[in-house]
Write a protein that binds this DNA or RNA. Structure first.
Length: 723
DNA sequence: TAATCAGCTTTTTTT
DNA sequence: AAGCTGATTA
C-alpha cells in the first residue's frame, strides 16, 4: 500500500497525528496549523491504510460549512466513493438518528424542527397562556434557561423542586413547554441533542448497534462541545474508545453558549490511553503576529499550553492606531483599505473585525461614502426571513395540522379578520382540552361559541389549509411550494407593503420556489422522508447564507466570533477598548475575561501579513459619549512588536507608552473631576466618577456610588469631595 | 386593523 | 441611536 500521498507534505507533528495507532487522540491544533488537513488525512489513513470501512466512520462538526468542506476534501482524497461514511453537524446527525428511531423515542414520524425564532415565539405564547408576568420572566431569559437545562441534559422532571419562587416558576414553564412541544410534534435544537443522547442511553440494542457500527468517531472544534454533546460522544465510543478529537483550548469562545472547555480535561481522564499531539507550527501568519498572539494568551490560566511558531518571515510590525473618536477610527481604517486596494490588492483580502455588531454601522457609512464595496457577515439568513418563515409555515401546517407554531404564525397572516379575541378563544379551548390549535379551531367552527364573522373567517382559513394540503398530494417539490405561496395570498400581502421592503419580500418568495427547485434529496436505506419534509428540515437546520453576492471583490466586515476559522492578509481589529473589548459584562469575572482574551487571540491570529489594532478615545455608544481606556489586551502585547501610527503624517514611531499617553482618564471635566476620580458625597457616600458632560453651570458628572449605584449630579449643586 | 408614540434595553451565534 | 414592545388612538 502506497501511503506516501497521505503523509507527504505534512510536518512531523501532523504526520504523528494522522498516523497514530492509539485508540483515542487529542489533537491540539493551534490557529493556522492545518487542522482540517489533519482531520481529512486521518480519514484517508483509516480507510486506505487501516482498511477501515467508510461505513464505520463518523465525523462530527459544528457548522454546515465545516461539514461540507470536510466531505468535499475527504471525497477528493478518496478514489472510491465514501457513501457509507457519516459526516455532519451534531444537530444534523442527531436529526438523522431521531428520524430513524422516532418510534422508540415516542416521536411522531413527521416531527418538525423548531428554530430559535420559532422557539422564542412559542415561549412567548406559552407565558401568555400561563399568565406569567413576562417582566419577571422575560421570554428571552426563559428561552435561555430552557436551552441551558437541555444542554446540561436535564429534563424538567429531573430538576429538584426549588423553594425559590423565581426558579420554581422557570421549572414550571419548562415543564409546560415540553408538553407543548410534544403535543405539536416539535423538536427544538437542544432537544435534538438531548433526544439523541437519551436514545443511546436508554436503548441497549440501539446503543450497541451504533457502538459497533461507528468504530471511529472524529470531532472537529472539540473545545466547543457542550455537556450533552460530550456525553453523547462518550456513549457512542465507550466500547471502542476510538474517539479522535481536534480542537484548541485557546480558541474556545462559546462558553456563554454552553460550550465546556473542561471537556478537554474530561477527555484526558475518560480516555486514559489517548495520544496527545500539539500542532504548533503555523502556516498563516508572520512571526511578529504569532509573537503577539502568544504573548497575549499566556495571561490565561489553566491552558493546555501551546506556542505558535513559523519558519516564515518576521513581517511588518503590528500597527496601533488611536482614533480621536469612533468616526476617526472608521475613517482611518477605510483610508488604509483604499491604500491597500490602490496597490493592486484585492479588497476581499481585508477584514474589519469588531466585538459587537453595532460597530459595523460606522464602517459601513464610511465605506459607502468612499464607494468601497463591502460585505457584512452575520446578517439575517435566507430561511430566517419573515416572509420565508411565513411561507414555510403554510407548508408545515398543510402537511402537519398539529403544528401549533405554524398555526400561530399564519392564522392571521395575511390578515383575514381573526383578531385577538378569536385567537384567545381558540388558545383557551386548546389549552383546556389539551389539543392542538388546529383541532380546537375545527371544534369551534362547528360549535356556536364564535361570532358568525369570526367563525366564517376561521373556517375560511381551515379550508384554505385543507385545500393547499390536497393540492400538495400531486406535483413535485417546487410546484408544491409555489402552489402554497400563491394560495396563501402572501404575494399580494407583501406587494401591498409600501417601500422597497415589500418588493424585496416578493422577490424572496420567488427565490424560495427557486430554492425548492434546486433542492435535491434522495431518501436512502436508513433515512426516508418526503421530499417536502426534507426541505423543511433543511430550512431549519441550514438557514442558508446571510448574503448572496459573493462574486464582487468586497471588504469583509464581521464580528470576531464569526471570524473564527477564517484568515485574511490584512486585518483590522477595531474598538479595542475597555468596556467594549473586553466587554463591560466580562470585566469582573475571571472566566469571562479569559474568554474575551481568547477572542482577542482569535482576532490576532486571523491576520496573515498585516494587523492593525485600533481604538478610539471617544466613542458614541447607546447614544452617549464615552471615553474608554485602551484595552488591557493592547498592554499585553509587547510594545516592540507594535508601532503607533500617527494621524496626518506618514511617520510612525515605536509605541513607547501608549497607555498613559492616550488614556481617556486624562480628560478633565469641569472642576477637575476626571473620570476614575474617587469622590465622596454627603448623602450617597463614596463613589467613582464614570462620565461627565456640559460645562459651567450645566456641568454634570456621573458617579457610581458604592451604596446607591450610579447617579448624574449637577456640579453646581452637588457637593463632591475628592478622595 | 393599522398607525403612531412613549418607554425600555442594549455582546458574542450556530444549530 | 435604534429597534422593539405595549398601549393608545384613528
Amino acid at each position: 500500500m502506497d501511503i506516501t500521498h497521505i503523509l507527504d507534505g505534512l510536518n512531523d507533528a501532523q504526520r504523528d497525528a494522522v498516523s497514530g495507532t492509539e485508540k483515542a487522540a487529542l489533537i491540539l491544533a493551534g490557529a493556522g496549523s492545518g487542522k482540517t488537513r489533519v482531520l481529512v488525512h486521518r480519514v484517508a489513513w483509516l480507510i486506505q491504510v487501516e482498511n477501515v470501512s467508510p461505513y464505520a466512520i463518523l465525523a462530527v462538526t459544528f457548522t454546515n460549512k465545516a461539514a461540507g468542506e470536510m466531505r468535499e476534501r475527504v471525497q477528493q482524497m478518496q478514489q472510491s466513493p465514501v457513501g457509507g461514511m457519516w459526516i455532519g453537524t451534531f444537530h444534523g446527525i442527531a436529526h438523522r438518528l431521531l428520524r430513524m428511531h422516532a418510534q422508540q423515542l415516542g416521536l411522531p414520524d413527521a416531527f418538525q424542527v423548531l428554530d430559535s425564532d420559532d422557539q422564542f415565539r412559542m415561549i412567548k405564547r406559552l407565558l401568555k397562556s400561563m399568565n406569567v408576568d413576562d417582566s419577571r420572566w422575560p421570554p428571552r431569559q426563559v428561552q435561555w434557561y430552557i436551552n441551558a437545562q437541555k444542554d446540561e441534559g436535564r429534563r424538567a422532571k429531573h430538576i429538584a423542586p426549588s423553594s425559590d419562587h423565581f426558579e420554581q416558576k422557570m421549572q414550571d414553564i419548562y415543564a409546560e413547554y415540553e408538553r407543548g412541544c410534544i403535543r405539536s410534534g416539535l423538536v427544538d435544537f437542544a432537544e435534538l441533542l438531548l433526544r439523541a443522547h437519551e436514545l443511546l442511553r436508554d436503548n441497549d440494542e440501539i446503543r450497541q448497534h451504533y457502538q459497533q457500527r461507528f468504530k471511529h468517531v472524529l470531532v472537529d472544534e472539540f473545545q466547543d462541545t457542550n455537556t450533552i454533546q460530550y456525553a453523547w460522544l462518550r456513549l457512542l465510543t465507550e466500547e471502542s474508545e476510538n474517539l479522535y478529537v481536534v480542537g484548541d483550548d485557546d480558541q474556545s469562545i462559546y462558553g456563554w453558549r454552553g460550550a465546556k472547555i473542561e471537556n478537554i480535561h474530561r477527555f484526558q481522564k475518560d480516555y486514559p490511553a489517548h495520544k496527545l499531539v500539539k500542532l504548533e507550527q503555523n502556516y498563516r501568519s508572520t512571526s511578529t503576529i504569532l509573537k503577539a498572539a502568544n504573548a497575549l494568551i499566556v495571561n490565561n490560566d489553566g491552558r493546555m499550553g501551546k506556542e505558535l511558531w513559523t519558519d516564515g518571515e518576521e513581517g511588518e510590525p503590528i500597527s496601533l492606531y488611536s482614533g480621536f473618536n469612533d468616526q476617526d477610527e472608521a475613517r482611518f481604517v477605510v483610508d488604509r483599505i483604499r491604500d491597500w486596494a490602490s496597490k493592486g490588492h484585492a479588497r476581499a483580502e481585508a477584514a474589519i473585525l469588531y466585538r459587537s455588531n453595532a460597530q459595523s454601522r460606522l464602517f459601513e457609512e464610511y465605506l459607502m461614502a468612499a464607494g468601497v464595496p463591502y460585505r457584512v457577515y452575520g446578517g439575517q439568513r435566507f430561511f430566517e426571513r419573515l416572509e420565508i418563515k411565513n411561507a414555510l409555515a403554510y407548508l408545515q401546517l398543510a402537511t402537519h395540522h398539529e403544528n401549533d407554531a405554524a398555526f400561530e404564525r399564519i392564522v392571521n397572516t395575511p390578515t383575514r379578520g381573526l383578531g385577538t379575541r378569536t385567537l384567545d378563544i381558540i388558545r383557551g379551548s386548546a389549552r383546556a382540552e389539551q389539543i392542538s390549535l388546529w383541532q380546537a379551531a375545527v371544534q369551534l367552527c362547528q360549535g356556536d361559541e364564535l361570532t358568525g364573522r369570526a367563525s366564517n373567517a376561521l373556517s375560511g382559513f381551515l379550508n384554505l389549509i385543507k385545500q393547499i394540503s390536497s393540492e400538495m398530494a400531486a406535483g413535485n417539490l417546487h410546484e408544491q411550494v409555489e402552489q402554497a405561496i400563491v394560495r396563501s395570498g402572501l404575494i399580494e400581502f407583501h406587494k401591498k407593503e409600501k417601500g422597497e421592503k415589500g418588493e424585496a419580500r416578493v422577490e424572496n418568495l420567488e427565490e424560495l420556489v427557486n430554492a425548492a427547485r434546486q433542492f435535491s434529496y434522495q431518501a436512502n436505506e436508513d433515512d426516508s422522508l418526503s421530499e417536502l419534509d426534507a426541505f423543511l428540515a433543511n430550512a431549519a437546520l441550514e438557514a442558508g447564507e446571510a448574503q448572496g453576492d459573493e462574486s464582487e471583490d468586497c471588504v469583509q466586515l464581521m464580528t470576531l466570533h464569526s471570524a473564527k476559522g477564517l484568515e485574511f492578509p490584512l486585518v483590522f481589529m477595531t474598538g479595542v477598548e475597555e468596556g467594549l473589548f473586553p466587554s463591560q459584562r466580562s470585566v469582573d469575572d475571571v472566566a469571562k475575561l479569559e474568554e474575551e482574551r481568547r477572542l482577542a487571540y482569535v482576532g490576532i491570529t486571523r491576520a496573515m501579513q498585516q494587523l492593525y489594532i485600533t481604538y478610539a478615545e471617544s466613542r458614541r455608544l447607546h447614544g452617549q459619549e464615552n471615553y474608554p481606556m485602551p484595552s488591557r489586551f493592547i498592554r499585553e502585547i509587547p510594545s516592540e512588536l507594535m508601532q503607533e501610527v500617527r494621524l496626518g503624517t506618514k511617520v510612525s514611531r515605536p509605541v513607547v507608552n501608549a497607555h498613559a499617553a492616550t488614556s481617556g482618564l486624562q480628560k478633565k471635566a469641569e472642576g477637575g473631576f476626571k473620570m476614575g476620580q474617587r469622590v465622596s458625597h454627603g448623602k450617597f457616600g463614596e463613589g467613582v466618577v464614570l462620565n461627565h458632560e456640559g460645562s459651567g453651570a450645566q456641568a454634570r458628572v456621573q458617579v457610581n456610588f458604592a451604596a446607591v449605584g450610579s447617579k448624574w449630579l449637577m456640579l453646581a449643586y452637588a457637593k463632591l469631595d475628592k478622595l
